[in-house]
Design a protein around this nucleic acid. Sequence first.
DNA 1: TTTT
DNA 2: TTTT
Lengths: 168, 168, 168, 168
Amino acid sequence: MPSDKRRKDMGKTVNKSILLGHVGKDPEIHVLQADNTVANFTLATNDIYRDRMGESHETTEWHNLVAFGRTAEVVRDYVQKGSRIYVEGKLRTRSWDDRETGQKKYRTEIVILDLTLLSFNNGNENGADYSSENGNGARQVRRSNTQQHPGQDYAYSEQGGDPNEIPF
Amino acid sequence: MPSDKRRKDMGKTVNKSILLGHVGKDPEIHVLQADNTVANFTLATNDIYRDRMGESHETTEWHNLVAFGRTAEVVRDYVQKGSRIYVEGKLRTRSWDDRETGQKKYRTEIVILDLTLLSFNNGNENGADYSSENGNGARQVRRSNTQQHPGQDYAYSEQGGDPNEIPF
Amino acid sequence: MPSDKRRKDMGKTVNKSILLGHVGKDPEIHVLQADNTVANFTLATNDIYRDRMGESHETTEWHNLVAFGRTAEVVRDYVQKGSRIYVEGKLRTRSWDDRETGQKKYRTEIVILDLTLLSFNNGNENGADYSSENGNGARQVRRSNTQQHPGQDYAYSEQGGDPNEIPF
Amino acid sequence: MPSDKRRKDMGKTVNKSILLGHVGKDPEIHVLQADNTVANFTLATNDIYRDRMGESHETTEWHNLVAFGRTAEVVRDYVQKGSRIYVEGKLRTRSWDDRETGQKKYRTEIVILDLTLLSFNNGNENGADYSSENGNGARQVRRSNTQQHPGQDYAYSEQGGDPNEIPF
DNA sequence: TTTT
DNA sequence: TTTT
């Protein structure tokens, strides 16, 4: 084993996030290219804390999640507003210059590496089971054209191949 | 056990991040109040990926870390530029309106809940051991007055008691 | 901060396990003492792997879980055979000499530090909701007298106060 | 996406352990087959707790670690008694019938999926740097013939190909 | 801005 | 002994 390898193992780092919560809205699905689907959505987690008076308060933390490829397809087909999911991923912060103000802007996301569905239901009252309708559980893929993620100055390249090449 | 309790356990969420990497610069220390120290610093993790040509690339991810109270004191005394640390915490995103542009801005941080020091050395060539000098390992606390965290429109309240009450 | 403290932070270790799966049987509840309930149960996780022929196989891993105090009460009241739960805890291995053979025996458990219920249903067909019946969601506490955990040579002390003092 | 797939995602489980500590003894290396090295060793983590008298105590927890393939080679070449490492893996419990007593015996291990070296030094006083000696950091591979892992009634098959096929 |  |  080359000493080069050892140096690499010595310098290894860890970037891991584990989230379990409820999805805030239906995922945005983008098809960048054949075999490269991207899914963007938000996940809520709750934090309970006590203030100085001893009173209990609850805050909601919203996380930006993004999935690529096969995982994005699972999100597309089975995750929706209200879904409860378990997610393991890594943090990634993108930055860009705002077109209007020229200011640097940041957006931190969790890139999903592992996803577990925890609820069949979709949070709607009717509790429709998508899997029964056509035998494959798929819902329509929404290909939104409205850019809404990291600001008006941001555009999907719609051509990237590898997740790591995608500029967001 | 009240059914109210069960509902709480059913709705419980998880917000956990685990990072292991190197500190980018000496931590900023703020003393908000007696017994409430805050430490802000950045941590780098590396990501290696292959592009479509099969070539290996390395990117660096920068994380904003914040510690409160006792943990902030450990950061103040033993963490510096170059330190290697293991951190467990939770994600928190603060937002504020930029004073100049009126735009909403966001900053995501990892609130440190557990910290493990992995390197004695401080990255400086002299390798000074702070713990030997005066028997308490403390270095000077820097009380910076220059606001530098989430922009010029942001100010420390310098009065919060509970970490969760602090407006950032 | 004493240098003694720094040595402690330098030597800090991490012992963390995260499990998400289904409960194998109704938890065993033991009341060691006022305010010290103990719950023992098993949790199944699945592993999918490919053999050398490329065929996919699934194995089941069984984990021994133990909860103390407040958490044990949640287990007693809401966890049962078939429940899906998320658990965070630490590994602990107990050992004892088998009475019959004199051999050293080992049992590794995950001591639950955080528990999240993921299913209301109990796996029974009737889907009884314990929380509705009497307003407290409690089911009968089973105080089994039959020793069944780490072998016939093992006995609950039924008197420990701190989880760490309990001899199992 | 077939509904079969959805059922799989719904039933997904998590089995994850994260350990950071010191290695108890030099790893045992076994070469089962070309391209299938196995490394076994122990890792210590510390637990600090308070007893009922409020006094602080420290216990040491010993974990059985096992690595396969490429990871086992890293262990073979760079991990030794005293090394500090970070490990991510999954729990696996093997069982077998003791030859002498016929009793069922169990051994729980963490199968290493990710390993980060945290110390160059080996814990020995001489602090030898293996990487400098011959430019590749390798130490002699020990092929122990003495069976010592899960008891005298246990034998390595020395023929498995896939980690998941190995009977331990 | 870190580290290998 | 769970679940899909």
